[in-house]
């Protein structure tokens, strides 16, 4: 019955339902072998742990839809978190100013990536690798080795609070709202159409009279913006801004998109798949923790899972070609 509903959903989206099935199977196995896993607390816990990656993965998915990739999101997250901390804690500025400024900074980093890639035709990998290093360097320099802590309750609400009267964590609501919004964008707005089209065939899209430079730049700008938004949630969650925050986050975000069915060649996949992908990664991490697998080994296992997802994508594309 659930599968039926899922299939209908999937047909509407022209995508496969594999990520949802994988997720369901994973949950089933873990629920059987670990009594702790199936507690409500643990399930909410998983979603809370997933939010940061899931928010970054929204932007990453947009970029991947165009056939690109953004390696700088983790560093951009680190940088905007530090800038937020310096403004709020060191300079006693209002979060109402500091947060928008920090998010605008993330957007600016993304915009630079976008211009480098769409206008100056750099390889996405190379341009964002440079940005990754620059943003991290800036964060480390600005922080000067320290962690910035001490925020107001109003500020940390986004990462720690719940919606009044419901007990639902704010960050989960934010995450879901973003997915609904971007799902709508991709399915019902011109922008979404054009983003897919660019990934499907950039030259044909340009020759159809679509401003490819504009839309590509937009996706990278959104990726930067969403990374900065994730930094807001992260700083609030931890009550601390760290210059090394966000290291390796780009990998998790790419993995979420790919596990969710987005092709690294661009032009296919959907938002809801990425959310599934992000939750799958969260569930695997959670399960491995419950099974007392060391964090080093966890890294290895996740690496293998990412490899499998990418291989599946590559084989699928070979068949497609």
């Amino acid at each position: 019955m659930t599968e039926n509903v899922l299939r209908r959903f999937a047909r509407i989206d022209k995508s496969n339902i594999t990520p949802a099935i994988v997720l369901a199977a994973l949950c089933l196995i873990l629920a059987v072998i670990s009594p702790t896993f199936r507690t409500q607390d643990n399930l909410v816990n998983i979603l809370q742990q997933v939010t940061i990656n899931a928010i970054i993965a929204v932007g990453m998915t947009l970029v991947i839809f165009t056939g690109g990739v953004d390696l700088s999101v983790g560093s951009v997250l680190g940088l905007s978190g530090i800038v937020m901390g310096i403004m709020i804690v060191d300079n006693k500025m209002s979060p109402l100013i500091a947060v928008p400024v920090a998010i605008a900074l993330g957007a600016a980093c993304g915009f630079v990536n976008g211009i480098l890639i769409s206008k100056l035709k750099l390889q996405p990998m190379i341009a964002t690798l440079a940005m990754m290093s620059m943003a991290r360097g800036a964060a480390l320099t600005l922080a000067n080795g320290k962690t910035i802590t001490g925020y107001s309750k109003e500020f940390t609400w986004i990462g720690q609070g719940t919606i009044p009267g419901t007990g639902i964590p704010v960050q989960i609501v934010l995450m879901l709202a973003l997915y609904v919004g971007f799902y709508y964008l991709m399915k019902y707005r011109k922008t979404g159409r054009y983003i897919y089209a660019i990934g499907g065939n950039e030259e044909a899209t340009r020759l159809s009279g679509i401003n490819v430079v504009k839309y590509k730049t937009l996706t990278y700008t959104l990726a930067g913006t969403l990374a900065a938004l994730a930094s807001f949630v992260l700083v609030a969650k931890l009550n601390s801004a760290q210059p090394i925050a966000g290291q390796d986050y780009e990998l998790d975000a790419i993995a979420s998109a790919v596990i969710g069915g987005a092709s690294l060649l661009g032009g296919s996949g959907n938002m809801w798949g990425t959310l599934m992908g992000a939750i799958i990664i969260g569930v695997i991490r959670n399960g491995l923790n419950l099974l007392n697998v060391s964090s080093n080994l966890q890294k290895l296992i996740l690496g293998i899972i990412i490899l499998i997802a990418i291989l599946t994508d590559a084989l699928r594309n070979r068949k497609r070609a």
Binding site: R193, A204, R320
Partner: peptide
Amino acid sequence: QGLILNFDVNTNISL
């Protein structure tokens, strides 16, 4: 240059 081969007829026409 003219088509997105992996997309359907509908999407190509609307492009």
